[in-house]
Design a protein around this nucleic acid. Structure first.
Lengths: 354, 354
DNA sequence: TTCCTGGACGGTAACGTTTCCAAGTTTTAG
DNA sequence: CTAAAACTTGGAAACGTTACCGTCCAGGAA
């Protein structure tokens, strides 16, 4: 039997049975080290203006007591914000948002910042409430994937704000997003380049990004000297797969179905593929945003992709700089490029109508 | 000029353009409403023991000033914890974790609680540090998807803890998880029932869940009167798809390959399918945990699934009750059931060897 | 020596809230 | 009508930290 050696854990031993373990405060540390409160604070905050010997005594006391600074009390002091950022977004289940969350979390963590997530329903009112709650927690900054609706109420919040993925109206703040228009153009150009002339576009009701992608789509058509058939521009009532599935079915059952489909969102792409699978039809398909397993589907899916993680990282970095006052430039607008990844579904030639 | 005597807050020296808008405090509200500070506090906290008329005056002042309680100052009072829960987990990019996060976020939000995410690298030391940081933020409770390693240091933290998905050693706390053993048994029974006798199992290095799933796998074999071929029990060095892909390739290129594979994790399942696709082999496959698009792959994937969202919800609910002191039962152990969802990949009969 | 300079340190006042206590006011009971 | 009880209300202390303002001491300059 492997007699595991004892844990190498000279942890400050708290008593097992005390649920209310009073955590030691700076005062306890000061008493233990035989110094004043101010000195402890100075040591904890980098130790300027403290003699090495004294600082060492304080550090010893800190270790012995297992002291850890109470961030709440610290944040109470005027001027000091808590060392947390807030992240307000929709559906964490959507890999797109999850990626943003993960990336910003990493960057924030490296600077010792925690990230508070706001639970957001779909409605703008819920978003507003969530934001207010986060602000009341004295977060040092807000990262918001904004819903439609006016965000002017953020203007006087006294907290730096960075919008992610899409800008908000009513306030001029930093924004980090992808080149939606370029992506839309890329997708359309790719399909047009294969000879497709009847291309449908499915749009989720997320006004800004949707609009830009559509604009790029139109531009590509114009450059190619073609008109967009407005009946192939489908505004979906919801942004989920089911909605796209239904719309695709209707599209393909028309007497003049499109020969290609551009799904402007990862969930929409899924819906499109689902419908096509059932209908046994195979128009060309290009999706916006890459997704897991896209390359493993019966026909690997061609997508317009961008570095979503970088979206989150940039946002967090920018926000941290703003919060620290290290960045006083006027509101920035960071736009990340898109690239088309051909995998098969987007390279199917148009079927001759007759 | 109205020689108002020094108001504490006649818009301090903030310049019009400064983002530093001083938010009103309870003192401002009290002055405005012509009442005492205590009265404002009482109104804000539900308004017991305050005359209706007075309360109304206070509420009016609150609205006029746009006052909002400073949660940080509130949390400073002894006994009061901040109204945030902490959630410590690994990779938000994994839909499994994302689902937990989303669900717990919803439940917490309904009770006015925010959720602070700890950024967690892979190492136990990072986890420990993240937890300490969160505790220093005075969160009301911790939800942890624990890494291996001792968690005894949480014993004296003075905060209720709920472990999610797997228990931790060194501390007796609430735990919410799925029936790993049952799930493992289910998968194996399903495959054995089809006549498979050489079933490989791929295990990610997450000791607890992995161990239980393997145990169920073994039990099913024993019940069927079969021995597990230990060379088909593959402990992967990492829990990602690449690792599983490599292992699968090696398995299938053996002279005596398995006729079925049980992938004990969603990412592993992906790796397995990837390898099989390239090798053009089609043993039966069952995965643990459902995943998006599982039903749309060339061969729809049979999985053992459970209600992951409920995992997150239960954890949050339990933690909220503990934090409120509403639940003083001994540590609970909530186990959610698993079910097998046949989709095709798990229903392939064994190929006759020769 | 004396004076000054400057670094090291101790003490204390905030920060915005909750909670307790005392004081004031109304209602109820006798 | 009076006394007690119940309810309102104002004020102040405390939570743990940081920032500021002194004091003290060493050491250099005069």
């Amino acid at each position: 039997m492997p007699c595991r050696e004892k844990e190498v854990n000279p942890v400050p031993e708290t008593f097992p049975n005390t649920p209310e373990a009073a955590r030691p405060t700076m005062i306890d540390v000061a008493r233990r080290a035989g110094v004043g409160l101010g000195t402890v604070s100075r040591v904890v905050n980098g130790g300027h203006g403290v003699r090495d010997e004294t600082a060492q005594r304080v550090r010893t006391a800190i270790d012995q007591l297992g002291f850890q600074r109470n961030e709440v009390a610290r944040a109470l002091r005027p001027g000091k914000k808590s060392s947390s950022l807030a992240l307000v977004l929709g559906d964490l289940t959507n890999p797109f948002y999850a990626t943003i969350a993960k990336a910003s979390l990493e960057v924030a963590g490296q600077s010792g910042f925690a990230v508070v997530l706001g639970s957001v329903d779909e409605d703008p009112e819920g978003e507003k409430r969530a934001i207010r709650e986060l602000v009341s927690r004295q977060v040092a900054g807000l990262m918001i994937v904004p819903d439609q609706g006016d965000h002017a109420f953020l203007q006087g919040a006294g907290v730096p704000v960075v919008f992610v993925d899409r800008p908000a109206t009513g306030i001029d703040a930093d924004i980090v997003m992808v080149d939606n228009e370029g992506g839309g153009r890329l997708a359309a150009e790719h399909l047009l380049g294969q000879g497709h002339e009847r291309i449908a576009i499915l749009l989720a009701p997320s006004y800004y990004t949707t609009g830009r992608r559509l604009r790029g789509f139109r531009r590509a058509h114009r450059s190619a000297g073609l008109d967009v058939d407005e009946s192939l521009v489908v505004q979906l009532p919801e942004g989920n797969a089911e909605s796209a599935e239904k719309a695709t079915r209707e599209l393909m059952l028309r007497p003049d179905p499109p020969t290609a489909i551009f799904a402007s969102t990862n969930f929409l792409t899924e819906g499109v593929l689902r419908a096509l699978g059932e209908l046994r039809r195979d128009p060309a398909v290009v999706g916006f945003d890459d997704f897991r397993l896209a390359d493993m589907l019966p026909t690997p899916v061609t997508v317009v992709a961008s570095d979503i993680a970088e979206l989150g990282r940039s946002a967090a970095r920018l926000l941290l700089d703003r919060a620290a006052g290290a960045d006083t430039r006027p509101p920035q607008r960071i736009v990340l490029p898109c690239a088309l990844i051909p995998r098969g579904s987007g390279e199917r030639p148009p079927k001759k109508k007759r």
